[in-house]
Write a protein that binds this DNA or RNA. Structure first.
Lengths: 223, 223
DNA sequence: GTCTATAGCTAGATAGAC
DNA sequence: GTCTATCTAGCTATAGAC
Protein backbone atom coordinates (compact mmCIF):
# COMPACT_ATOMS: atom_id res chain seq x y z
CA UNK A 1 0.00 0.00 0.00
CA UNK A 2 1.20 3.47 -0.84
CA UNK A 3 0.10 6.88 0.43
CA UNK A 4 -1.80 7.66 -2.75
CA UNK A 5 -4.67 8.67 -0.51
CA UNK A 6 -2.75 11.67 0.75
CA UNK A 7 -3.11 14.84 -1.35
CA UNK A 8 0.61 15.58 -1.42
CA UNK A 9 1.09 13.04 -4.20
CA UNK A 10 -1.08 15.19 -6.46
CA UNK A 11 1.65 17.85 -6.40
CA UNK A 12 2.91 20.16 -7.68
CA UNK A 13 -0.35 21.96 -6.99
CA UNK A 14 -0.28 25.10 -9.13
CA UNK A 15 -2.24 27.20 -6.65
CA UNK A 16 0.42 26.78 -3.96
CA UNK A 17 3.16 28.35 -6.05
CA UNK A 18 0.71 31.03 -7.11
CA UNK A 19 -0.40 31.87 -3.58
CA UNK A 20 3.24 32.12 -2.52
CA UNK A 21 3.83 34.90 -5.04
CA UNK A 22 3.05 38.13 -3.25
CA UNK A 23 3.44 41.80 -4.21
CA UNK A 24 6.79 42.89 -2.70
CA UNK A 25 5.05 45.39 -0.44
CA UNK A 26 2.92 42.72 1.17
CA UNK A 27 5.81 40.34 1.60
CA UNK A 28 7.76 43.02 3.45
CA UNK A 29 4.81 43.57 5.76
CA UNK A 30 4.47 39.84 6.45
CA UNK A 31 8.18 39.40 7.12
CA UNK A 32 8.17 42.36 9.49
CA UNK A 33 4.98 41.18 11.21
CA UNK A 34 6.27 37.63 11.63
CA UNK A 35 9.42 38.95 13.24
CA UNK A 36 7.53 41.26 15.56
CA UNK A 37 4.97 38.60 16.50
CA UNK A 38 7.79 36.19 17.24
CA UNK A 39 9.71 38.61 19.44
CA UNK A 40 6.91 40.35 21.29
CA UNK A 41 3.85 38.18 20.74
CA UNK A 42 0.73 38.96 18.77
CA UNK A 43 -1.04 41.10 21.34
CA UNK A 44 1.80 43.33 22.37
CA UNK A 45 2.81 43.99 18.78
CA UNK A 46 1.13 47.17 17.59
CA UNK A 47 0.39 48.00 13.99
CA UNK A 48 2.60 51.04 14.51
CA UNK A 49 5.48 48.72 15.31
CA UNK A 50 5.00 46.65 12.18
CA UNK A 51 4.86 49.86 10.17
CA UNK A 52 8.03 51.14 11.87
CA UNK A 53 9.91 48.01 10.88
CA UNK A 54 9.27 48.66 7.20
CA UNK A 55 9.88 52.38 7.58
CA UNK A 56 6.29 53.40 7.02
CA UNK A 57 3.19 54.28 9.02
CA UNK A 58 -0.11 52.60 9.79
CA UNK A 59 -1.72 53.75 6.57
CA UNK A 60 0.56 51.64 4.40
CA UNK A 61 -0.23 48.57 6.46
CA UNK A 62 -3.99 49.04 6.48
CA UNK A 63 -3.94 49.67 2.75
CA UNK A 64 -2.74 46.08 2.30
CA UNK A 65 -4.43 44.24 5.15
CA UNK A 66 -7.86 44.71 6.65
CA UNK A 67 -6.91 44.10 10.26
CA UNK A 68 -4.20 42.84 12.57
CA UNK A 69 -5.80 39.40 12.59
CA UNK A 70 -5.76 39.44 8.80
CA UNK A 71 -1.99 39.90 8.95
CA UNK A 72 -1.65 37.02 11.38
CA UNK A 73 -3.70 34.74 9.14
CA UNK A 74 -1.55 35.72 6.15
CA UNK A 75 1.57 34.79 8.14
CA UNK A 76 0.00 31.48 9.11
CA UNK A 77 -0.99 30.80 5.50
CA UNK A 78 2.42 31.62 4.11
CA UNK A 79 4.15 29.40 6.65
CA UNK A 80 1.93 26.48 5.71
CA UNK A 81 2.30 27.09 1.98
CA UNK A 82 6.09 27.14 2.28
CA UNK A 83 5.97 23.84 4.15
CA UNK A 84 3.59 22.31 1.63
CA UNK A 85 5.70 23.32 -1.35
CA UNK A 86 8.86 21.97 0.23
CA UNK A 87 7.18 18.70 1.24
CA UNK A 88 5.74 18.06 -2.19
CA UNK A 89 9.16 18.74 -3.66
CA UNK A 90 10.84 16.26 -1.31
CA UNK A 91 8.26 13.57 -2.01
CA UNK A 92 8.63 13.87 -5.75
CA UNK A 93 12.31 13.12 -5.45
CA UNK A 94 11.76 9.82 -3.67
CA UNK A 95 8.46 8.56 -5.02
CA UNK A 96 9.77 5.01 -5.42
CA UNK A 97 11.69 4.74 -2.13
CA UNK A 98 10.71 2.69 0.92
CA UNK A 99 8.28 4.15 3.41
CA UNK A 100 11.04 4.69 5.98
CA UNK A 101 13.04 6.64 3.42
CA UNK A 102 10.07 8.74 2.47
CA UNK A 103 9.37 9.39 6.16
CA UNK A 104 12.95 10.55 6.48
CA UNK A 105 12.68 12.80 3.42
CA UNK A 106 9.47 14.44 4.62
CA UNK A 107 10.89 14.89 8.11
CA UNK A 108 14.08 16.49 6.85
CA UNK A 109 12.06 18.80 4.61
CA UNK A 110 9.94 19.76 7.62
CA UNK A 111 12.94 20.33 9.89
CA UNK A 112 14.72 22.36 7.23
CA UNK A 113 11.63 24.41 6.59
CA UNK A 114 11.31 25.30 10.25
CA UNK A 115 14.87 26.58 10.26
CA UNK A 116 14.71 28.33 6.91
CA UNK A 117 11.45 30.13 7.69
CA UNK A 118 11.69 30.06 11.40
CA UNK A 119 10.01 33.41 12.14
CA UNK A 120 6.86 32.19 10.41
CA UNK A 121 6.93 28.83 12.15
CA UNK A 122 7.60 30.26 15.60
CA UNK A 123 4.61 32.56 15.14
CA UNK A 124 2.43 29.66 14.03
CA UNK A 125 3.66 27.49 16.87
CA UNK A 126 3.06 30.00 19.62
CA UNK A 127 0.13 31.96 18.24
CA UNK A 128 -2.43 29.76 16.56
CA UNK A 129 -3.93 28.18 19.65
CA UNK A 130 -4.39 31.55 21.29
CA UNK A 131 -5.91 33.14 18.20
CA UNK A 132 -8.40 30.30 18.15
CA UNK A 133 -9.63 31.37 21.58
CA UNK A 134 -10.39 34.91 20.42
CA UNK A 135 -13.81 36.21 19.56
CA UNK A 136 -13.70 35.90 15.77
CA UNK A 137 -15.92 36.96 12.93
CA UNK A 138 -17.32 34.07 10.88
CA UNK A 139 -15.10 34.74 7.89
CA UNK A 140 -11.97 34.78 10.04
CA UNK A 141 -12.94 31.61 11.86
CA UNK A 142 -13.51 29.83 8.56
CA UNK A 143 -10.14 30.90 7.27
CA UNK A 144 -8.45 29.83 10.50
CA UNK A 145 -10.09 26.40 10.22
CA UNK A 146 -8.86 25.97 6.68
CA UNK A 147 -5.32 26.71 7.76
CA UNK A 148 -5.66 24.33 10.70
CA UNK A 149 -6.64 21.68 8.19
CA UNK A 150 -3.44 22.24 6.24
CA UNK A 151 -1.54 21.59 9.44
CA UNK A 152 -3.54 18.53 10.36
CA UNK A 153 -3.06 17.23 6.87
CA UNK A 154 0.70 17.47 7.15
CA UNK A 155 0.59 15.59 10.44
CA UNK A 156 -1.54 12.83 8.98
CA UNK A 157 0.94 12.47 6.15
CA UNK A 158 3.69 11.70 8.64
CA UNK A 159 1.36 9.43 10.56
CA UNK A 160 0.60 7.57 7.31
CA UNK A 161 4.29 6.90 6.68
CA UNK A 162 4.76 5.63 10.22
CA UNK A 163 1.75 3.31 9.93
CA UNK A 164 3.04 2.06 6.62
CA UNK A 165 6.54 1.56 7.98
CA UNK A 166 5.23 -0.44 10.89
CA UNK A 167 3.32 -2.71 8.56
CA UNK A 168 6.32 -3.38 6.34
CA UNK A 169 8.70 -3.67 9.31
CA UNK A 170 10.93 -0.72 8.46
CA UNK A 171 9.72 1.07 11.61
CA UNK A 172 9.74 -0.42 15.08
CA UNK A 173 6.69 -1.82 16.77
CA UNK A 174 5.54 0.75 19.29
CA UNK A 175 2.44 2.84 19.86
CA UNK A 176 2.14 4.52 16.44
CA UNK A 177 0.25 7.54 17.70
CA UNK A 178 2.85 8.29 20.33
CA UNK A 179 5.68 7.73 17.87
CA UNK A 180 4.07 10.23 15.50
CA UNK A 181 3.65 12.78 18.26
CA UNK A 182 7.19 12.34 19.49
CA UNK A 183 8.68 12.64 16.00
CA UNK A 184 6.63 15.70 15.11
CA UNK A 185 7.24 17.16 18.56
CA UNK A 186 10.98 16.75 18.10
CA UNK A 187 10.86 18.43 14.70
CA UNK A 188 8.54 21.24 15.70
CA UNK A 189 10.57 21.59 18.90
CA UNK A 190 13.39 22.88 16.69
CA UNK A 191 11.55 26.19 16.76
CA UNK A 192 12.20 26.26 20.51
CA UNK A 193 15.98 26.14 20.41
CA UNK A 194 17.09 27.02 16.88
CA UNK A 195 18.23 30.55 16.11
CA UNK A 196 19.57 31.30 12.64
CA UNK A 197 23.17 32.35 12.45
CA UNK A 198 24.06 35.12 10.08
CA UNK A 199 25.89 33.65 7.12
CA UNK A 200 24.51 30.16 7.59
CA UNK A 201 23.90 28.63 4.20
CA UNK A 202 20.98 26.55 3.01
CA UNK A 203 23.28 23.53 2.81
CA UNK A 204 24.36 23.93 6.42
CA UNK A 205 20.72 24.07 7.52
CA UNK A 206 19.99 20.95 5.48
CA UNK A 207 22.86 19.16 7.19
CA UNK A 208 21.56 20.13 10.59
CA UNK A 209 18.02 19.08 9.66
CA UNK A 210 19.42 15.73 8.54
CA UNK A 211 21.26 15.21 11.81
CA UNK A 212 18.25 16.09 13.95
CA UNK A 213 16.04 13.69 12.01
CA UNK A 214 18.73 11.02 12.17
CA UNK A 215 18.76 11.41 15.96
CA UNK A 216 14.99 11.15 16.18
CA UNK A 217 14.90 8.08 13.94
CA UNK A 218 17.81 6.19 15.50
CA UNK A 219 18.00 7.58 19.04
CA UNK A 220 20.80 8.64 21.33
CA UNK A 221 21.84 5.21 22.54
CA UNK A 222 24.41 3.07 20.72
CA UNK A 223 22.96 0.60 18.23
CA UNK B 1 33.61 11.22 36.70
CA UNK B 2 30.26 12.06 38.24
CA UNK B 3 28.11 15.19 37.96
CA UNK B 4 29.07 16.37 41.46
CA UNK B 5 29.65 19.74 39.88
CA UNK B 6 25.95 20.17 39.20
CA UNK B 7 23.91 21.63 42.08
CA UNK B 8 21.15 19.04 41.88
CA UNK B 9 23.27 16.53 43.81
CA UNK B 10 23.12 18.88 46.80
CA UNK B 11 19.40 18.16 47.07
CA UNK B 12 16.95 18.07 48.72
CA UNK B 13 17.31 21.82 48.96
CA UNK B 14 15.05 22.91 51.81
CA UNK B 15 14.17 26.26 50.26
CA UNK B 16 12.60 24.60 47.20
CA UNK B 17 10.01 22.73 49.25
CA UNK B 18 9.42 25.85 51.28
CA UNK B 19 8.94 28.11 48.28
CA UNK B 20 6.47 25.59 46.83
CA UNK B 21 4.24 25.96 49.88
CA UNK B 22 1.85 28.79 49.10
CA UNK B 23 -1.19 30.19 50.90
CA UNK B 24 -4.21 28.48 49.28
CA UNK B 25 -5.52 31.81 48.01
CA UNK B 26 -2.34 32.51 46.08
CA UNK B 27 -2.17 29.01 44.66
CA UNK B 28 -5.71 29.38 43.30
CA UNK B 29 -4.74 32.64 41.65
CA UNK B 30 -1.63 31.09 40.07
CA UNK B 31 -3.54 28.05 38.82
CA UNK B 32 -6.22 30.28 37.31
CA UNK B 33 -3.66 32.63 35.82
CA UNK B 34 -1.60 29.81 34.31
CA UNK B 35 -4.71 28.39 32.68
CA UNK B 36 -5.78 31.77 31.33
CA UNK B 37 -2.28 32.65 30.08
CA UNK B 38 -2.09 29.29 28.36
CA UNK B 39 -5.44 29.61 26.62
CA UNK B 40 -5.45 33.28 25.68
CA UNK B 41 -1.87 34.43 26.06
CA UNK B 42 -0.41 36.85 28.57
CA UNK B 43 -1.46 40.09 26.94
CA UNK B 44 -5.04 39.27 26.14
CA UNK B 45 -5.65 37.87 29.60
CA UNK B 46 -7.07 40.62 31.79
CA UNK B 47 -6.82 40.71 35.55
CA UNK B 48 -10.62 40.69 35.53
CA UNK B 49 -10.54 37.36 33.76
CA UNK B 50 -8.18 35.81 36.29
CA UNK B 51 -10.42 37.13 39.07
CA UNK B 52 -13.50 35.72 37.34
CA UNK B 53 -11.96 32.27 37.22
CA UNK B 54 -11.62 32.17 40.99
CA UNK B 55 -15.01 33.78 41.52
CA UNK B 56 -13.67 37.06 42.81
CA UNK B 57 -12.84 40.55 41.54
CA UNK B 58 -9.66 42.46 40.81
CA UNK B 59 -9.22 43.56 44.41
CA UNK B 60 -8.56 40.03 45.64
CA UNK B 61 -5.91 39.54 42.97
CA UNK B 62 -4.10 42.82 43.57
CA UNK B 63 -4.14 42.14 47.30
CA UNK B 64 -1.90 39.13 46.65
CA UNK B 65 0.19 40.23 43.68
CA UNK B 66 1.62 43.62 42.84
CA UNK B 67 1.07 43.47 39.10
CA UNK B 68 0.21 41.24 36.19
CA UNK B 69 3.89 40.67 35.50
CA UNK B 70 4.33 39.67 39.14
CA UNK B 71 1.74 36.93 38.60
CA UNK B 72 3.54 35.75 35.48
CA UNK B 73 6.85 35.59 37.31
CA UNK B 74 5.22 33.60 40.12
CA UNK B 75 3.87 31.13 37.56
CA UNK B 76 7.32 30.86 35.98
CA UNK B 77 8.92 30.36 39.38
CA UNK B 78 6.46 27.70 40.48
CA UNK B 79 6.89 25.77 37.24
CA UNK B 80 10.66 25.73 37.68
CA UNK B 81 10.45 24.80 41.37
CA UNK B 82 8.16 21.87 40.59
CA UNK B 83 10.63 20.66 37.97
CA UNK B 84 13.57 21.10 40.30
CA UNK B 85 11.93 19.19 43.13
CA UNK B 86 10.95 16.34 40.85
CA UNK B 87 14.41 16.18 39.25
CA UNK B 88 16.23 16.09 42.57
CA UNK B 89 13.88 13.35 43.69
CA UNK B 90 14.57 11.26 40.59
CA UNK B 91 18.33 11.69 40.91
CA UNK B 92 18.37 10.62 44.53
CA UNK B 93 16.77 7.32 43.56
CA UNK B 94 19.50 6.44 41.08
CA UNK B 95 22.61 8.07 42.48
CA UNK B 96 24.75 5.00 41.77
CA UNK B 97 23.40 4.14 38.32
CA UNK B 98 25.19 4.59 34.99
CA UNK B 99 25.14 7.96 33.31
CA UNK B 100 22.75 6.71 30.62
CA UNK B 101 20.35 5.51 33.30
CA UNK B 102 20.52 8.78 35.15
CA UNK B 103 19.94 10.63 31.88
CA UNK B 104 16.87 8.50 31.39
CA UNK B 105 15.63 9.13 34.93
CA UNK B 106 16.04 12.90 34.64
CA UNK B 107 14.40 12.91 31.21
CA UNK B 108 11.41 10.89 32.41
CA UNK B 109 11.03 13.20 35.40
CA UNK B 110 11.12 16.18 33.05
CA UNK B 111 8.61 14.67 30.63
CA UNK B 112 6.29 13.66 33.45
CA UNK B 113 6.54 17.09 35.01
CA UNK B 114 5.53 18.76 31.77
CA UNK B 115 2.43 16.59 31.61
CA UNK B 116 1.56 16.80 35.30
CA UNK B 117 1.92 20.60 35.44
CA UNK B 118 1.35 21.32 31.84
CA UNK B 119 -0.46 24.66 32.22
CA UNK B 120 2.57 26.08 33.99
CA UNK B 121 5.00 24.67 31.44
CA UNK B 122 3.00 25.80 28.43
CA UNK B 123 2.97 29.32 29.86
CA UNK B 124 6.71 29.21 30.48
CA UNK B 125 7.35 27.80 27.03
CA UNK B 126 5.32 30.34 25.12
CA UNK B 127 5.64 33.38 27.35
CA UNK B 128 9.11 33.80 28.74
CA UNK B 129 10.85 34.93 25.58
CA UNK B 130 8.18 37.53 24.93
CA UNK B 131 8.20 38.84 28.51
CA UNK B 132 11.95 39.29 28.16
CA UNK B 133 11.35 41.74 25.31
CA UNK B 134 9.10 43.95 27.44
CA UNK B 135 10.16 47.17 29.08
CA UNK B 136 10.86 45.93 32.60
CA UNK B 137 11.69 47.56 35.91
CA UNK B 138 15.08 46.60 37.30
CA UNK B 139 13.66 44.40 40.03
CA UNK B 140 11.51 42.46 37.56
CA UNK B 141 14.38 42.01 35.14
CA UNK B 142 16.59 40.66 37.89
CA UNK B 143 13.94 38.19 38.96
CA UNK B 144 13.38 37.10 35.38
CA UNK B 145 17.11 36.50 34.96
CA UNK B 146 17.23 34.36 38.09
CA UNK B 147 14.42 32.20 36.76
CA UNK B 148 16.13 31.96 33.39
CA UNK B 149 19.17 30.66 35.23
CA UNK B 150 17.12 27.89 36.81
CA UNK B 151 16.10 26.85 33.33
CA UNK B 152 19.60 27.03 31.92
CA UNK B 153 20.83 25.05 34.87
CA UNK B 154 18.41 22.22 34.16
CA UNK B 155 19.53 22.14 30.54
CA UNK B 156 23.18 21.98 31.52
CA UNK B 157 22.39 19.07 33.81
CA UNK B 158 21.07 17.09 30.84
CA UNK B 159 24.00 18.22 28.74
CA UNK B 160 26.37 16.98 31.49
CA UNK B 161 24.83 13.51 31.43
CA UNK B 162 25.11 13.33 27.66
CA UNK B 163 28.74 14.42 27.75
CA UNK B 164 29.45 11.86 30.42
CA UNK B 165 27.61 9.13 28.53
CA UNK B 166 29.60 9.84 25.41
CA UNK B 167 32.83 9.54 27.32
CA UNK B 168 31.90 6.20 28.87
CA UNK B 169 30.36 4.89 25.65
CA UNK B 170 26.80 4.50 26.91
CA UNK B 171 25.68 7.23 24.51
CA UNK B 172 26.39 7.28 20.80
CA UNK B 173 29.07 9.40 19.23
CA UNK B 174 27.35 12.36 17.64
CA UNK B 175 27.41 16.14 18.02
CA UNK B 176 26.70 16.41 21.76
CA UNK B 177 25.23 19.88 21.57
CA UNK B 178 22.74 18.87 18.89
CA UNK B 179 21.86 15.68 20.73
CA UNK B 180 21.12 17.72 23.85
CA UNK B 181 18.96 20.14 21.91
CA UNK B 182 17.07 17.39 20.17
CA UNK B 183 16.43 15.47 23.37
CA UNK B 184 15.30 18.55 25.29
CA UNK B 185 13.31 19.72 22.26
CA UNK B 186 11.52 16.39 22.11
CA UNK B 187 10.69 16.53 25.81
CA UNK B 188 9.67 20.18 25.88
CA UNK B 189 7.77 19.55 22.66
CA UNK B 190 5.39 17.42 24.69
CA UNK B 191 3.78 20.69 25.73
CA UNK B 192 2.86 21.16 22.06
CA UNK B 193 0.76 18.04 21.63
CA UNK B 194 -0.10 16.74 25.08
CA UNK B 195 -3.49 17.54 26.60
CA UNK B 196 -4.42 15.99 29.94
CA UNK B 197 -7.35 13.61 29.91
CA UNK B 198 -9.74 13.77 32.78
CA UNK B 199 -9.25 10.76 34.98
CA UNK B 200 -5.71 10.13 33.81
CA UNK B 201 -3.67 8.89 36.75
CA UNK B 202 -0.16 9.82 37.73
CA UNK B 203 0.95 6.29 36.85
CA UNK B 204 -0.47 6.59 33.35
CA UNK B 205 1.38 9.84 32.83
CA UNK B 206 4.58 8.24 34.07
CA UNK B 207 4.11 5.40 31.60
CA UNK B 208 3.64 7.84 28.76
CA UNK B 209 6.66 9.86 29.86
CA UNK B 210 8.68 6.65 29.88
CA UNK B 211 7.58 5.71 26.38
CA UNK B 212 8.35 9.14 24.95
CA UNK B 213 11.83 9.14 26.49
CA UNK B 214 12.37 5.56 25.31
CA UNK B 215 11.54 6.70 21.78
CA UNK B 216 13.92 9.64 21.99
CA UNK B 217 16.73 7.48 23.37
CA UNK B 218 16.34 4.53 21.03
CA UNK B 219 14.65 6.02 17.95
CA UNK B 220 11.88 4.92 15.65
CA UNK B 221 13.86 2.53 13.49
CA UNK B 222 14.31 -1.16 14.34
CA UNK B 223 17.46 -1.96 16.29
C1' DG C 1 -9.43 40.84 52.79
C1' DT C 2 -12.55 41.94 49.14
C1' DC C 3 -15.36 45.14 46.88
C1' DT C 4 -16.55 49.23 43.38
C1' DA C 5 -15.30 53.31 40.88
C1' DT C 6 -12.24 55.68 38.20
C1' DA C 7 -7.97 57.75 36.51
C1' DG C 8 -4.86 57.34 32.81
C1' DC C 9 -3.01 55.11 28.94
C1' DT C 10 -2.45 52.29 24.86
C1' DA C 11 -3.59 50.71 20.58
C1' DG C 12 -6.96 49.08 16.59
C1' DA C 13 -9.34 51.07 13.14
C1' DT C 14 -11.07 54.87 10.12
C1' DA C 15 -11.46 59.39 7.62
C1' DG C 16 -9.71 62.57 4.81
C1' DA C 17 -5.55 65.33 3.07
C1' DC C 18 -1.97 65.08 -0.36
C1' DG D 1 -0.51 54.60 -2.04
C1' DT D 2 0.90 56.71 2.08
C1' DC D 3 0.33 60.13 5.47
C1' DT D 4 -1.69 62.42 9.95
C1' DA D 5 -5.41 63.10 13.12
C1' DT D 6 -8.82 61.14 15.80
C1' DC D 7 -12.47 58.26 17.60
C1' DT D 8 -13.26 54.56 20.74
C1' DA D 9 -12.73 50.45 23.47
C1' DG D 10 -10.52 47.99 26.84
C1' DC D 11 -7.14 47.40 30.19
C1' DT D 12 -3.74 48.12 34.32
C1' DA D 13 -3.41 49.89 38.55
C1' DT D 14 -4.99 52.59 42.52
C1' DA D 15 -8.08 54.79 46.03
C1' DG D 16 -11.26 54.39 49.28
C1' DA D 17 -15.66 52.12 51.13
C1' DC D 18 -17.14 48.22 53.93
Amino acid sequence: MTVQATPYVAYPRPDVAEKLRLPPGRLRILDAAAEAFMERGYDSTSIDEIADRIGATKGAVYYNYRSKLDIFLAVYERGMLLLEERTADALQKCADATSAERLRAVSVAHADNIMSNYTYHVVIQSGVEQRRQMALKDADRTRLSELDQMRTHHESLIQAFIDEGQRDGSIRDMPARLATRTLIGGIVGIAIWYRPRTGQTQDERLDMAGEVVELLLTGLLPR
